[in-house]
Simulated scan of single mutants.
Amino acid sequence: MREVDLRLASGRKGTFIAYRDATLFKAAYAWGLRASEAAGLDVTDFYRNPHAPEFGPFGMLLVRNGKSSSGGAPKRRSVATLHGWTADAVRDYVENIWPLVRDESSNALWLSERGRRLRADDVSRRFAEYRDELALDQVLSPHALRHSYVTHLTEDGVDPMFIQRQVGHAYQSTTAIYTAVSGDFANKMMRKAVSGLLAAAGAGKVEQ
């Protein structure tokens, strides 16, 4: 029997909730989701990416309820899976936890102990409870996970246009607002820019 089965079989109150929340927040970070987008996920929103077969059936995620523009219909987007650990986490949840609480009439991914789909305010409330328990900054919300996703991809050198598509922003300037790179990264980029300019200036002198 797997560890998750042992923990669930123990009957300890809150075990399912803690496991669900851990997987939920991993997914929100790993796919750069808003709280409403994460809450609205169905199990069937995951599918294979032929360009990343190592993630199996969790290679892509269809976000069906992205933020709308000017009161229009929710925007849909496909988000590529970038981390093996989150594909493994969601797979484990879907195979071992979800079947124990799912409502046969729904494919909702994140459920309460009574089988009800979580709402965006449920996600925010659960995040706040963990935040307060850990004595983290009160300003933090689930949206901080989305900001961290953009920042970490930027620091890892991922193409800005790809990041923009992943998070569903219409404009690159919006994505840039999300980025709060570390001082070390900023210094590294500054040093790279200076070195490039010096190299270009040196090459110009040689040509003269």
Rank of each mutant, 00 (worst) to 15 (best):
94 V>Q: 10
1 M>P: 00
21 D>S: 09
12 R>I: 13
63 V>A: 15
54 E>R: 05
138 Q>T: 15
22 A>V: 07
124 S>W: 04
84 G>V: 07
122 D>T: 11
81 T>G: 11
64 R>C: 08
24 L>M: 15
29 Y>W: 12
96 N>F: 14
205 K>N: 06
93 Y>L: 07
143 H>E: 13
68 S>R: 05
9 A>M: 06
138 Q>S: 15
20 R>L: 07
106 S>E: 15
176 A>T: 05
96 N>W: 12
37 E>I: 07
118 L>I: 10
108 A>W: 03
118 L>Q: 01
49 N>L: 02
59 G>F: 04
46 F>I: 08
189 M>D: 08
98 W>V: 13
193 A>M: 12
144 A>E: 14
36 S>D: 13
33 L>G: 08
40 G>P: 05
19 Y>N: 03
122 D>M: 06
79 V>F: 04
133 E>C: 00
90 V>Q: 06
47 Y>F: 15
1 M>T: 13
207 E>N: 04
56 G>M: 05
72 G>K: 06
84 G>S: 14
2 R>G: 03
106 S>Q: 11
93 Y>V: 11
196 G>S: 01
160 P>I: 12
42 D>V: 02
68 S>W: 05
67 K>I: 12
9 A>T: 04
129 E>Y: 10
16 F>S: 03
162 F>G: 02
153 L>E: 14
197 L>F: 06
196 G>I: 08
195 S>G: 00
133 E>Y: 10
14 G>V: 02
177 I>T: 09
147 H>Q: 13
133 E>P: 00
57 P>V: 13
195 S>K: 00
97 I>S: 13
4 V>K: 01
108 A>G: 06
87 A>Y: 06
48 R>A: 15
111 L>K: 02
128 A>K: 09
150 V>M: 11
88 D>N: 13
85 W>P: 06
142 P>C: 10
205 K>Q: 12
192 K>A: 10
20 R>T: 03
125 R>E: 14
47 Y>C: 15
24 L>C: 10
15 T>N: 01
39 A>R: 00
82 L>T: 03
153 L>F: 09
160 P>A: 12
113 E>S: 12
22 A>S: 12
66 G>V: 01
145 L>A: 14
95 E>S: 12
42 D>L: 03
16 F>P: 01
156 D>E: 15
86 T>E: 08
19 Y>S: 11
90 V>D: 10
41 L>S: 07
98 W>P: 01
120 A>L: 01
170 A>N: 11
195 S>I: 00
132 D>Y: 02
44 T>A: 14
141 S>C: 12
30 A>N: 14
116 R>G: 05
71 G>Q: 03
139 V>E: 13
33 L>V: 14
176 A>V: 02
177 I>R: 02
151 T>L: 03
34 R>H: 12
108 A>L: 08
152 H>T: 13
179 T>K: 00
160 P>S: 12
132 D>G: 06
49 N>H: 06
72 G>Q: 07
172 Q>G: 15
102 R>F: 11
168 G>K: 01
146 R>Y: 10
44 T>V: 04
15 T>R: 01
188 K>F: 08
157 G>E: 04
51 H>P: 00
190 M>T: 08
156 D>P: 00
67 K>H: 10
113 E>F: 02
43 V>A: 09
177 I>E: 05
87 A>I: 07
26 K>A: 15
100 L>Y: 05
40 G>S: 11
41 L>Y: 03
23 T>M: 06
160 P>F: 12
